[in-house]
Design a protein around this nucleic acid. Structure first.
Length: 823
RNA sequence: GCCGAGGUGAUGGAAUUGGUAGACAUGCGUGAUUUAGGAUCACGUGCUUCACGGCGUGUGGGUUCGAGUCCCACCCUCGGUACCA
């Protein structure tokens, strides 16, 4: 660099503060519903839970998402990129109990702080559309959604065994139970029966399963499929016999995916909790059965697991009848049968199911082989044979193969009315009731007059406001039930005395529709106007953590489909394209947590290096979907780069008087632009930044240019600023101004590259002998084989290799390589 | 067990369809500058060998002129899920 003129030093903190203020003042990022010249495009990053401080994970998730939104905005779209707060939920209540504040005050304070921290990111959030799920103008609509679901028979009240967290004193969704423990409190979860509100998500199981065409990561799609867990099989009735061995009215209904093994049934197993157990157990077995049931209840899921899956169980003394061969079959109870999956009863086929095999071995029950193939013929079974094969010992079905037998036996059972085809799902209906304070009240009234019964709150009465002055300390009852003022009301139908529902809604309900509200966040008359819906929905690009695969992302899809069927929205899927970023870890490679003491605070990193260097470092670290440990000594790399970039842009090289024009600068800028464009569209921020660094370094290496290249130089600098704009919004804006361009760089267009300019006239081609690289030669682009071979032979080193040897074959790939095979 | 992703220098990671392995960056080394610096700049840096060269992408085999990339078998790590009948 020959220019002696002193330039100002790069000072990230000063310029970042300056531009954030100006953008805010100019409302640069407020997005109108319509822009006559541009196509609308909706980008979304998951909104944060209001936990108190923005942590590095938020930056890792949001900064690249912002860069993407900015890129598509430069590509000529009218991009909506909103932000808000997921503000209801247990931690607010827990923190309030601990810190002796009120959940609302705690939450509102956190929102204030987090909004400030978010603004330091320099993202293009449209704050005009901010939502706060705990604000009454938001949860009014959460309640409205509940009413719509209720009116369309998608919400129902039912008794159910629920997961009960004894520490937080609330129910939990299955998704919130990890290894039998509460994902929040860590307490061992108990089973309790309660009256609860459910959503019929299972009605949508098949449609939710159908996700092949979605532009989502395959891992997330497969997680959802596994979670829904569809299996096709048959339900079969086994008639229970009385003590005289006569058929009774009682039947055991089992679900099996292997009806072809029906003749192999040698016992029946009920879950200890199965309602038939008490009715069929014989007098002699009563005590033993009761004892087993009690011990099961006391066993936590952890204990069940830790017993190395050793089978336990008790005979009930009762028998049932095999529907096809009329054999008498013992009925047992065992805890390996889950009361909540299928029918809570299993037909024991020890020869062809490993669990049944273990059980039969332990209790010396008969093992009848009914499937065989060439491999296991005549062999004594030492474990269950679970492969397909041919039926044996199965009367009229002998000789059929597994697949045929499944169909024929199912058909036969159906015809004889002893069974039928059944599709079973692992996923259960969504339990939304929470016995907690800090959530949206469920808009239901229970009228004391039995004729009215359960009465939904009329839409005009919404929102049912969450009272501020309530005792929310945990007592096992819903805090709202302790507030006379809240509970006592009049029935909307008969005007008689009535009581309100005192449970609140699962917060996943709030987050199932927030992206819908962004499109029309201030609408007082409707959840969204059809105009706003047409403008923005569905979301074009959603990004967020894969930990939400089976909860938030599945619930949102259900909500959207339900909304379609209720006539609220038009489309089938809420998120057209979804990408899940990985997780940023502590410097020790572990998950960041206060207890480990490995938390890196983004605020201090921003203060030290500036938001631009910090953002770009997070993107440079590695592939975005991979995550990984944060390296405190690595940020300096992107900081140094921005420093070099700063000096480069503000200093022109010496201009010589040589007339000859070079194509080098154009090649650098256009090929970098090509690569950067490809990379950002494919979420490859790390390689995009690497190539921008390469371009920066290449331009710095040029310390003099000739007069005719001046235009190319200025274009290169311009391209560089524009390409950096989505990644580092502050430094690019500042440099853009300093080189005398029009405000704002963020309203400029992404440049277009010219493909011919990305190629130069000569290229280095590797010359191999027998596939081993020996030398690289500078060859004209597009040269043919004889030319290249000739040049190679002329090379001294190659010539020595070829000396006295016979050339068997020459492989030449144009502009790629030359391989000479010799003997 | 099942489903999904992955295994490349000291470290994070590059390598569009099989075609120069290690781009870019950190760290480290040497030098420059500075009163000093954990600031900045330049050069070097896969392993091995004095060198010619040889060896190198989890392990073993295969296909090919040529394999990080394709095929077969296996090992390991991470994420999800599980007596799911």
């Amino acid at each position: 660099m020959q220019n002696s003129e002193k330039i100002e030093e790069y000072n990230p903190n000063a310029i970042e503060k300056k531009w954030q203020k100006k953008w805010d003042k100019d409302k640069l990022y407020n997005t109108p519903n319509k822009d006559s010249k541009k196509k609308n495009r909706y980008h979304l990053t998951m909104f944060p839970y209001t936990s108190g401080d923005l942590h590095i994970g938020h930056w890792y998730a949001m900064a690249p998402s912002d860069s993407l939104a900015r890129y598509y905005s430069m590509k000529g779209n009218n991009v909506l990129f909103p932000m808000g707060f997921d503000a209801f939920g247990l931690p607010a209540e827990n923190a309030a109990i601990k810190g002796k504040t009120h959940p609302k005050d705690w939450t509102d304070g956190n929102i204030e702080r987090m909004r400030k921290q978010l603004k330091k990111m320099g993202a293009m959030f449209d704050w005009n559309r901010e939502v706060n799920t705990s604000a009454d103008d938001y949860y009014k609509w959460t309640q409205w959604w509940f009413l719509q679901l209720y009116n369309n028979d998608l919400a129902y009240r039912g008794k159910a065994l629920v997961n009960w967290d004894p520490i937080d004193e609330t129910t939990l969704a299955n998704e919130q139970v990890i290894d039998g423990k509460s994902d929040r409190s860590g307490a061992l979860v108990e089973q309790r029966e309660m009256e609860q509100w459910f959503f019929r998500i299972t009605d949508y199981a098949d449609e939710l399963l159908d996700n092949d065409q979605m532009d989502w990561p395959s891992s997330v799609k497969s997680m959802q499929k596994n979670w829904i867990g569809k299996s096709v099989g048959a339900e079969i009735d086994f008639s229970i016999l009385d003590s005289e061995m006569n058929t009774t009215e009682l039947k055991i209904n089992v679900f099996t995916t292997r009806p072809d093994t029906l003749f192999g049934v040698s016992f029946m197993v009920l879950a200890p909790e199965h309602p038939l157990v008490d009715k069929i157990t014989t007098q002699e077995q009563k005590n033993e059965v009761k004892q087993y049931q009690d011990s099961t209840k006391l066993k936590s899921e952890i204990e069940r697991e830790s017993l190395l899956k050793e089978k336990t169980g008790v005979f009930t003394g009762a028998y049932c009848l095999h529907p096809l061969n009329e054999k008498k079959i013992q009925i047992w109870i065992a805890d390996y049968v889950s009361p909540t999956y299928g029918t809570g009863a299993v037909m024991g086929v020890p020869a062809h199911d490993q669990r049944d095999f273990d059980f039969a071995t332990k209790f010396s029950l008969e093992i009848i082989q009914v499937i065989s193939n060439s491999l296991n013929n005549k062999q004594e079974l030492i474990e269950a044979f679970t492969e397909d094969g041919t039926l044996i010992n199965s009367e009229q079905f002998n000789g059929k193969d597994t697949k045929t037998a499944i169909n024929e036996i199912t058909d036969y059972l159906d015809k004889e009315k002893i069974g039928k085809l059944k599709i079973q799902y692992r996923m259960r209906d969504w339990l939304i009731s929470r016995q907690r304070y800090w959530g949206a009240p469920i808009p239901i009234i229970y009228c004391e007059n039995n004729e009215c019964g359960i009465v939904p709150v009329p839409e005009n009465d919404l929102p049912i406001k969450l009272p501020y002055d309530v005792e929310f300390l945990p007592t096992g009852k819903s805090p709202l039930s302790l507030s006379e003022e809240f509970v006592n009301t009049t029935c909307p139908k008969c005007k008689g005395p009535a009581k309100r529902e005192t449970d609140t809604m699962d917060t996943f309900m709030c987050s199932s529709w927030y992206y819908i509200r962004y499109a029309d966040s201030k609408n007082k008359n409707a959840v969204i106007s059809s105009d706003s819906e047409n403008s923005w929905l569905p979301v074009d690009q959603y990004t967020g953590g894969a930990e939400h695969a089976t909860m938030h992302l599945l619930y949102s899809r259900f909500f959207y489909k339900a909304a379609r069927d209720m006539g609220v929205l038009k489309d089938d899927e809420p998120f057209t394209r979804y990408f899940s970023q990985g997780q940023i870890l502590g410097t020790d490679g572990q998950r960041m947590s206060k207890s480990r003491g490995n938390v890196v605070a983004p605020d201090s990193q921003v203060e030290k290096w500036g938001a631009d260097a910090f953002r770009s470092y997070l993107m440079f670290l590695g592939p975005w979907d991979q995550g990984g440990p944060y390296d405190l000594s690595g940020v300096v790399g992107t900081h140094r780069w921005l420093n070099r970039l700063w000096n480069l842009v503000l200093t022109r090289p010496t201009i010589t008087t040589i007339e000859e024009k070079s194509t080098m600068i154009k090649k650098i800028s256009h090929s970098t632009l090509k690569k950067a464009t490809y990379d950002i569209e494919n979420f490859r921020f790390n390689t995009m930044i690497a190539s921008l660094m390469e371009m920066t370094n290449a331009l710095i290496a040029i310390d003099e240019i000739n007069k005719n290249d001046l235009k190319s130089w200025d274009e290169a600098i311009e391209f560089l600023c524009l390409m950096i704009a989505p990644l580092c919004p502050h430094i690019s804006e500042e440099l853009w101004m300093q080189i005398g361009k029009e405000y704002s760089i963020h309203k400029m267009s992404w440049p277009e590259y010219i493909d011919e300019l990305t190629i130069s006239d000569t290229q280095e081609i590797p010359i191999q002998i027998n596939g081993k690289l020996r030398v690289s030669l500078d060859i004209m682009v597009g040269a043919d084989e004889p030319t290249v071979l000739q040049q190679a032979k002329e090379n001294e080193k190659i010539a020595t290799y070829l000396n006295q040897k016979e050339i068997i074959k020459v492989i030449y790939i144009q502009d790629k390589l030359l391989n000479i095979v010799i003997k």
